[in-house]
Amino acid sequence: MDFPTDLSDPRRLAGYASQISVVTVKSIRPGEERFGTPWTIADVRIELSLKGNQQGTISVLQQGGKRQSTGTAVRIGGDTPLVQGKSYLLSTTGTPGSNQTVIPVYGIKPLTTSDLEKLKTTGDTPADEVSDMRRAVTHQIPFTR
């Protein structure tokens, strides 16, 4: 996939994202197809916000899903599909107060149940993903749209 900046660099990802949060997926439903690509809508509960001011449960849009006409699964650039009940370190773009769009590939970091429990008790995860992203947010490289 082509992005307007190198999102493999966490500082650039932090500068590009409008919201970065640890979330738990509450529900998933199909969205509409746009230009032949199915979209998925996920309602997520924000467990911890690292960037942005959204709180509580919000809806996020993810490119890809099941094509309604054929039931064929479509993934964009090897993206990880969000799964109900699972937790993620999630980076999104969008206008605050509206649906956020998941940044494909680089904006989805799956977390295990033990990661989430450790985060709740110690403030970090075993692999330090949250600490690394906190540092990236602090030292983000702004993206000019």
Rank of each mutant, 00 (worst) to 15 (best):
K120F: 00
T95Y: 13
S114L: 07
G85P: 15
E117R: 12
G85Q: 06
L90R: 08
G123T: 11
P96Y: 04
S87F: 08
S98E: 15
S98Q: 15
T80H: 09
E117Q: 09
S87A: 10
P96R: 02
P81G: 04
T122S: 12
T113S: 14
G94A: 04
V105C: 07
T121C: 04
Y106H: 13
G94P: 15
E129G: 10
S91V: 05
V105E: 11
T101C: 04
V105R: 11
S87G: 13
L116I: 02
A127Q: 13
D115F: 03
G78C: 10
P81H: 02
T113C: 02
K109I: 05
T92C: 11
L82Y: 02
S91F: 03
P110D: 02
P96C: 02
P126I: 00
G97R: 03
G97A: 12
T125P: 15
S91R: 03
P81V: 00
G78L: 11
I103A: 06
K86Q: 15
P110M: 00
G78P: 14
K120N: 07
L111W: 02
G85Y: 12
P96V: 00
Q84M: 14
P81K: 00
P104F: 01
T122I: 01
I76E: 13
A127T: 12
L90W: 08
V74H: 06
Q84G: 15
K118N: 12
T113E: 14
Q100H: 14
K120W: 03
P126F: 00
T93S: 10
K86E: 13
L90D: 09
